[in-house]
Design a protein around this nucleic acid. Structure first.
Length: 790
DNA sequence: CCGCTGAATCTTTTT
DNA sequence: GATTCAGCGG
């Protein structure tokens, strides 16, 4: 990193003249005027430990950014002396933007603002040798990690069927989250993974070292190890980072906690911002305990509560508060708003998941038109927040057919897609030919006639000679042990890698050109061009996008580094779209209109969460419900379905227990469409009239005739709903460029034949996806597919 | 060695 | 329903 020396010089200079003696308060502080008293207190308490308990929507980021600006303004620290840690890249970027806006133009001057992981990489590159790595170590993603573990499991003679690699991976992850290196795993864990967990953990770490690689957990853990075993290094950083700020503190795991505490323990200028009610990453090792014990760790810490909510209307806030109040062991905050009560939280039940999706789709369009008693809300400001990503499918299917534009956030990440990972493996190989994992991934992709036997031979040779697989391949070729045409293709592959690698050695090579060349010469692009599955065009698109993304980097190395850490691919256009995402992904965001589907026991709260973590799990789920509701500014709609397909099997569902916990006076129960006689919506409202009921009564829902009918019918397969009548009108005038019998292509469903046309809606019989109604603009004529250039 | 088929497992949530 | 994987035939 060339920024390093510069930073070091800054830090050295800063140590010569103590900053505290410099001129103070030379500039005005207009940013303070916009803060409420609590926020201002949090900004002004610059020195010493501070815990900012910031409820949902209380202007936490505003306070945090103002604090940074104030630190700079008061000359407490230079931009490069502030360590500001977030969990996601998105959060880091937002903070950078906002600080930049407050400061004027000086946005780029904060090199130490980033995620735990990106900051750790930066530190680790500098001191890699202290943990037995070279500075150019590679970062494995979960996929690589799994491959590696599988090899080790195989070598250890363990039946992978009985003891899945995923299990081992999550064990090791968990240990790393708790900052346990192989030697430090306590004996209580000895039984893990058929008594061989720790043994394999050690083997895994050895293997990583020889590969000069780390996984995600290592990034943090290696830093902690270095800090603990090299006091001089630690001291350097302690002096360096004069002020530390941490966002989403409730999500830190033990390892991150140690990381922070080690860095902060000398000057104790640490400000942690968090909300125990929004701790939703316990399954990933986050310890709510970290926030609960902050005052013990940092005696004399100031605790400042931000409780005034600026986001949601009164009913929404009250409904959320009613739910979260059920959790025990909270630090306790009372959110309030000066704003209006607004609309009540709406609650509605549906027959099945498809109907739920249909209803929400129509509701979104109605709200967009402004026919729901509110001003129109455009699609960008409406969101559907689901518990589990598989719920998204129903919405995607429905929205595709009615032509409602949507964007899915947190689906399979761009860089996790197969074609991207393959391409990246090629790039990695070009940059570092010794990258054995990359070699294994692509040596036979596209097919080069190098099956398991050929690869095993290469492996043996490489191992025997103690060289990389690429060199092993060279040897195999020299010895002539690769039979038939595989040999020629392998030779071409090896020579290709050599050629590409040679290019990367030039100081100013054209990396975009190189990337294109690699994909071309390796035959990888061609492989997808010849692939006739419906996904192939999309994959080619992604590859194109990948190459385009390279433009922002100076070379392949820089790009690979970036991609291994980045999470957001915000390559969205300007088109208005409804957002679909998981509740987890929604934390920190807000939308005027929010839909919360799938509130059914087992799905939400998730059965697995409750099985694995009992009451703790349930409470975390409850916090998730709280996070969900508090995303809404003006309108929140909760829904559940009584039938849902799980693993392709129909299952009847019960409404979520969280529905019981909603304070009734803040909830409006809507009558479900398609349920005769008003169904349970009407019955549920019985509880409201009694004057005794404080909560939405699920018992009333169960006892309603509508509900009983649902249960009776839901044995094997739900009865088909009466066809909706509203879209039946056929518009004879509407024209379509298609005629019946045309072959068309659809991005998601693939090829198909048009069986019918109603206005701009096409009835298409897809070759693989069955028959669907699709809006004409979502398909293209089949014969034009090849025109899509690459 | 490749590609197809049927079976088995899977789904929480992510840097 | 979807993806992954072992087993089989070409």
């Amino acid at each position: 990193m060339n920024g390093w020396d510069e930073d070091e010089a800054f830090a050295a200079a800063a140590n010569v003249v103590p900053l505290s003696q410099r001129a103070m308060a030379t500039r005005g502080t207009p940013y303070l005027d916009e803060l409420n008293p609590a926020q201002r207190a949090a900004v002004l308490a610059l020195d010493g430990p501070v815990l900012m308990l910031a409820g949902a929507g209380t202007g936490k980021t505003k306070a945090l950014t103002a604090r940074i600006v104030h630190l700079l303004n008061q000359h407490k620290a230079r931009p490069n002396e502030i360590l500001a840690v977030t969990f996601t890249n998105k959060a880091a970027r937002e903070m950078k933007d906002r600080v930049g806006r407050l400061l004027g133009e000086v946005a780029e001057g904060m090199p130490w603002m980033g995620t735990f992981h990106s900051l750790s990489v930066k530190i680790l590159r500098r001191h890699a040798e202290l943990v037995g790595l070279k500075p150019n170590f590679t970062i494995l993603d979960t996929d690589d990690q799994l491959r590696l573990l599988k090899q080790l499991i195989l070598a250890a003679n363990i039946d992978e069927k009985r003891w899945p690699a995923r299990l081992l991976a999550s064990l090791i992850d968990g240990w790393k989250n708790r900052a346990w290196t192989p030697e430090k795993v306590p004996s209580s864990e000895a039984g893990a993974y058929n008594n061989r967990g720790t043994e394999l953990y050690a083997a895994y770490q050895d293997r990583l070292k020889t590969l000069n690689a780390t996984d995600f957990g290592d990034l943090l853990l290696h830093c902690v190890t270095i800090f603990q075993t090299h006091p001089d290094v630690l001291e350097q950083y302690q002096r360096w980072f004069r002020y530390i700020l941490v966002d989403e503190y409730q999500d830190t795991n033990v390892c991150q906690y140690l990381w922070l505490r080690l860095l902060a323990q000398s000057h104790r200028n640490i400000c942690c911002v968090g909300d125990d009610d929004q701790s939703i990453y316990g399954w990933r090792g986050a310890e709510v305990g970290n926030i609960l014990r902050f005052e013990k760790d940092f005696p004399g810490a100031q605790v400042i509560r931000l409780e005034q909510n600026y986001r949601s209307t009164g009913h929404i806030l009250a409904a959320a508060s009613g739910i979260i109040a059920r959790n025990a062991g909270r630090l306790g905050k009372t959110l309030w708003t000066a704003g209006a009560l607004g609309e009540k939280v709406r609650l509605i039940g549906h027959w099945d998941g498809e109907e739920e999706a249909r209803w929400i789709g129509e509701e979104i369009e109605a709200i967009q038109r402004g026919t729901r008693g509110m001003d129109p809300v455009d699609l960008n400001h409406q969101a559907i927040l689901v518990r589990a990503s598989h719920q998204m499918r129903a919405f995607e299917d429905r929205f595709l057919t009615i032509g409602l534009p949507y964007r899915v956030i947190g689906g399979p990440r761009f860089y996790e897609r197969q074609e991207i990972r393959d391409a990246m493996a090629y790039f990695r190989l070009a940059v570092s030919p010794d990258d054995d994992l990359a070699f294994e991934r692509v040596v036979n992709l596209p097919k080069r006639g190098l099956g398991d036997t050929a690869q095993a031979k290469i492996n043996v040779l490489a191992r025997a000679a103690g060289v990389s697989l690429l060199d092993g391949a060279r040897e195999a070729l020299a010895k002539g042990v690769i039979p038939g045409k595989g040999a020629a293709q392998l030779r071409a592959f090896v020579e290709g890698v050599d050629r590409w690698h040679a290019v990367t050695l030039h100081p100013e090579y054209d990396h975009i050109r190189l990337a294109e060349t690699i994909l071309e010469e390796s035959g990888y692009t061609e492989m997808w061009l010849n692939d006739k599955t419906p996904e192939a065009p999309g994959r080619l698109d992604n590859l194109k996008e990948l190459v385009k993304a390279l433009e922002q980097f100076d070379n392949l190395q820089g790009f690979l580094e970036h991609v291994s850490l980045i999470m957001d691919n915000e390559t969205e256009g300007a088109e208005e779209k409804v957002t679909i995402m998981t509740l987890h992904a929604a934390k920190g965001l807000e939308f005027p209109v929010v839909f919360l589907p799938g509130w059914e026991d087992g799905l939400f709260p998730s059965q697995r969460s409750m099985d694995e973590s009992g009451l703790k799990g349930l409470e975390e789920e409850r916090r998730l419900a709280y996070v969900g509701i508090t995303r809404a500014e003006r309108l929140a709609t909760i829904s559940f379905a009584s039938n849902r397909r799980v693993y392709g099997q129909w299952q009847s569902q019960l409404p979520s227990r969280f529905i019981d916990e909603l304070p009734a006076e803040h909830v409006e129960v809507l009558t479900a469409p398609g349920l005769y006689g008003g169904g349970f919506g009407a019955a549920a409202s019985v509880g409201f009239g009694s004057g005794l009921e404080e909560r939405v009564s699920k018992a009333d829902v169960y006892n309603s005739p509508g509900w009983r009918r649902l249960q009776e019918n839901s044995g094997t397969r739900p009865m088909r709903q009466p066809q909706e009548t509203r879209h039946v009108v056929i518009d004879m005038e509407a024209s379509s460029p298609y005629v019946i019998g045309d072959r068309v292509f659809h991005q998601k469903f693939g090829y198909g034949e048009i069986m019918g046309i109603e206005g701009d809606k096409l009835d298409v019989e897809f070759d693989h996806a069955g028959s669907k109604k699709v809006v004409a603009r979502w398909v293209i004529p089949a014969d034009r597919v090849d025109d899509v250039p690459f």
